[in-house]
Design a protein around this nucleic acid. Structure first.
Lengths: 182, 182
DNA sequence: TAAGATTGACTCTTCAATCTTC
DNA sequence: GAAGATTGAAGAGTCAATCTTA
């Protein structure tokens, strides 16, 4: 009996995951080639890998943010505001920078406001608009959450510095090709 | 006025996206360094890049699958079954291979069964279990959807073959370090 | 007692529709 | 009319609780 197949769950907060004893995506790529889809096989493997990597990373990030009652989406809003010069931004700007729907921004700001981390203010230069403004508490929580993420996720990915920086560059190419930025 | 900032929406099916004229993640990395978090900056950039790449790729994939009334999650179930020797698998096996919760599998199979692409059958070797079995229609749709994805996404990522294969290898390292497989 | 599967509550996202203000 | 923001419905994921059977 191979112990790894029955290995314990991985990563605090991720309940469902048992490690497989082989890479399911490499397996899928072989199946693709066997079907005569060799030209599409590498693309399929990359797309699937990005999906799975996102799932794994998001689980780790969310586990670290749970004590602060934050999700990654809400954390991103907090950091965006904390980097802005006034500590406040129009909701539309937030959605544009984070590439999410207006509805998601409204939802995120609703939660952050209920938690006292953000305050809604009328936009002085546009009567239609609303600003999301960071509170002192919001700035404090953002900093604490960043300390947690920095130490337990961002500096603990388990791969070399070269892998990390190369990965960033290649993903940047991919995002640019997909129209994320120009 | 920089035209790209006001450029049209990108990619069929993705309504919300306007391309930015700079890379917001590279910008965030600079902010991280300016805050004195240089050691965590590359990790932050990679994690955020994976999140954004997933969002962009999923939007493209879902747009191609919409005519078949499929999501990527349901498409993955279909392909997993079509690669199995009998064309059927226990629901638990599906969840294990796809790394999703039992609830998600139940939901996906519910939809696929309602669409006539999959049939539930009792597991002959385990009275507690249920098999998801591909129907002829399911096998046909799976093949058609694959043709669409192969030609319009997997072979059209817009990056070189070297970038694609290197990206796969590095993501494989990252997934392995995160415990996706052993 | 444990495992396979389902259910219901909750969250988040997307999308269309709406309201207000430019 | 067009843009900023909100709302409600629908889809999908997680999680805890439950039911059945090994």
């Amino acid at each position: 009996v191979c112990l790894v197949q029955h290995s314990a769950t991985i990563l605090s907060g991720v309940t469902r995951v048992r490690a497989l004893s082989f890479d399911p995506i490499a397996e899928a790529e072989r199946k693709w080639i066997a079907q005569g889809w060799s030209d599409a096989a590498p693309g399929m493997a990359v797309v699937t890998s990005v999906m799975r990597a996102q799932q794994l990373l998001l689980a780790r990030v969310d586990a670290e943010l749970r004590p602060f009652d934050l999700t990654f989406a809400r954390y991103e809003v907090l950091m965006l505001l904390s980097f802005s010069t006034r500590g406040s931004l129009p909701l539309g700007k937030v959605g544009e920078r984070l590439q999410v729907n207006p509805g998601s921004v409204t939802n995120a700001v609703d939660r952050l406001e209920a938690a006292g981390l953000v305050r809604r203010e009328p936009n002085p230069v546009d009567g239609r608009g609303t600003l999301a403004a960071l509170t002192d508490e919001g700035r404090r929580i953002a900093r604490q959450a960043t300390v947690a993420l920095n130490s337990r996720v961002f500096t603990a990915l388990g791969v070399t510095d070269v892998t990390t920086s190369t990965l960033f560059e290649l993903l940047q190419e991919l995002r640019q090709a997909a129209g994320d930025f120009v």
